[in-house]
């Protein structure tokens, strides 16, 4: 008498994507609050905003935009690589995405340092001597690009995590706890069967000295038989990265292109 258990279990791929999209909605609305302030203050101080924006370097902004767009490309390519069965390419693309993210952050760092060196930062004496609209412009500039940059950093950390996961992944693990599955198998053995029912592996006989049995496997799907749900986590991180890109797509013209 045997009992079978799905090794990779029932994961709700669509459900986890749904959860991720809802989380992204919260991120967009989080930034939306700041865009609301931008809109309101720009309406109040159109001239000051125009003048202050002249301080920003359009070239750096454009380069940063291109960097992020390209990082979105490499992000999408990493997932496509998984679907094509190409683990190596996937890992390379993830790494390239991180590097692009890093390049963005380096640019941002130098941009900020330049401003700060010129005395332009929140509450600086230099800034406070300027018209109110310009003070607000830079208050919003540092806040919005700062919080955006924080999200880029978080994305980079997540991607590094994904790099290692793809390297070791996907794998599956099933464990049977004493009192539960183990009890049922008492006296029998755990076995892994191929599709024809031939045992690929068999455990020692189960007895009540065992508290817990863990079975781990490692596998990598071939292109024709990949399951999208195996890459669910990478896809979700990808979605996050793209949203961070989209936020920048709006930040860019509003801060750099209103001269």
């Amino acid at each position: 008498m045997s009992q079978s258990v799905a090794l990779v279990g029932h994961r709700d791929y669509t459900g986890s994507k749904l959860g991720m999209w809802m989380f992204l909605a919260t991120e967009v609305i989080l930034f939306g609050g700041m865009f609301l302030l931008y809109a309101a203050y720009r309406s109040d101080y159109p001239g000051d905003f125009h003048a202050a924006a002249g301080e920003l370097n359009t070239l750096v902004g454009t380069v940063n935009t291109l960097i992020l767009l390209t990082s979105s490309l490499t992000m999408a390519l990493s997932i496509a690589a998984c679907h094509h069965g190409n683990r190596k390419l996937a890992m390379i693309m993830i790494l390239v995405t991180v590097i692009f993210g890093g390049a963005f952050m380096v640019n941002k760092y130098f941009e900020w340092m330049t401003k700060i060196a010129h005395g332009i930062y929140p509450s600086s004496e230099f800034l406070l001597a300027h018209p109110k609209g310009e003070i607000i412009f830079f208050g919003l500039y540092f806040t919005m690009t700062g919080i955006h940059g924080l999200h880029v950093l978080i994305g980079m950390v997540l991607l590094v995590g994904m790099f290692f996961k793809v390297m070791n992944q996907p794998n599956a693990q099933v464990s049977f706890l004493s009192g539960h599955g183990l009890q049922r198998a008492d006296g029998g053995r755990l076995a892994m069967l191929d599709p024809n029912g031939v045992p690929l592996w068999k455990s020692e006989p189960i007895d009540d000295t065992m508290e817990r049995v863990v079975v781990k496997t490692k596998y990598w799907p071939v292109k024709s038989r990949f399951r999208v749900e195996d890459f669910s986590l990478l896809e979700n991180v990808g979605l996050y990265w793209h949203i961070v890109d989209i936020i920048w797509i709006f930040l860019f013209p509003l801060f750099y292109l209103i001269t």
Binding site: L37, Y41, P122, S123, L128, K132, I136, G139, L140
Partner: peptide, 19 residues
């Protein structure tokens, strides 16, 4: 940091905070 968005002394609008 005194970014100014809600501080009238810096051009901020407290009513926007309320919104």
């Amino acid at each position: 940091f005194g970014i100014g968005v809600f501080d009238p002394a810096k051009g901020g609008d407290p009513i926007l905070y309320q919104h």
